[in-house]
């Protein structure tokens, strides 16, 4: 029973995040419905918390994806094309500004971490997470905006896992395009 419950929870969580990242039309309601199956099967508070966390990640991922599109569009409007020199920097600046302006719940930008501590900016060896989502006072997910052909590298993900508190799996690090 426990194995089935954990699996159901993981599927709900993973599915919500994946759908958000892929921009699929999965809604919070459908995630709740998915989760309800698990709850009905007898898995109470922990699954509900996991589901609520997954919904928060999914919503934030969706909002950030929309902001990323706006940021890229704003830079494109200046005459720069994605992939050209300078586009990435301009888009990241725009993205950060838009994220900050939205004031999304639990979201912070440009936070530095070292050894699972929050660190002052620029400390040698630290990881600067572009966007962090926190829940109940702890980081639950890291998002990184990518443009052009840039991808999340294995090194970037492993450094994030090494340095950011409560990030212990690559599934908690997502690229936003």
């Amino acid at each position: 029973m426990v194995t089935v419950g954990a699996s159901a929870g993981a599927n709900v969580v993973g599915g919500a995040i994946n759908n958000a990242v892929q921009g699929k039309a999965i809604t919070a309601k459908s995630v709740i419905t998915d989760a309800a199956v698990g709850v009905a099967a007898g898995f109470g508070g922990r699954l509900l918390e996991k589901t609520a966390a997954a919904i928060q990640v999914a919503r934030t991922g969706k909002a950030l994806t929309a902001i990323a599109a706006d940021a890229k569009a704003a830079v494109t409007a200046t005459g720069l094309k994605e992939g050209e020199k300078g586009f990435g920097t301009a888009a990241h600046t725009q993205f950060k500004s838009l994220v900050d302006a939205q004031g999304l719940k639990g979201v912070a930008t440009e936070q530095s971490y070292l050894g699972k501590d929050v660190a002052k900016y620029g400390i040698k060896g630290s990881t600067r997470a572009e966007v962090t989502l926190s829940r109940n006072g702890a980081v639950s997910h890291v998002f990184d905006f990518k443009t052009g052909s840039a991808t999340l590298s294995t090194k970037q993900v492993s450094n994030t896992i090494k340095n950011v508190p409560e990030i212990s799996s690559s599934s908690q690090v997502t690229a936003i395009r």
Binding site: L114, D117, V118, A119, K120, P165
Partner: peptide
């Protein structure tokens, strides 16, 4: 610690 930690804030 060998750096300024801001965890408690």
């Amino acid at each position: 610690k060998n750096f300024l930690a801001l965890t408690f804030g």
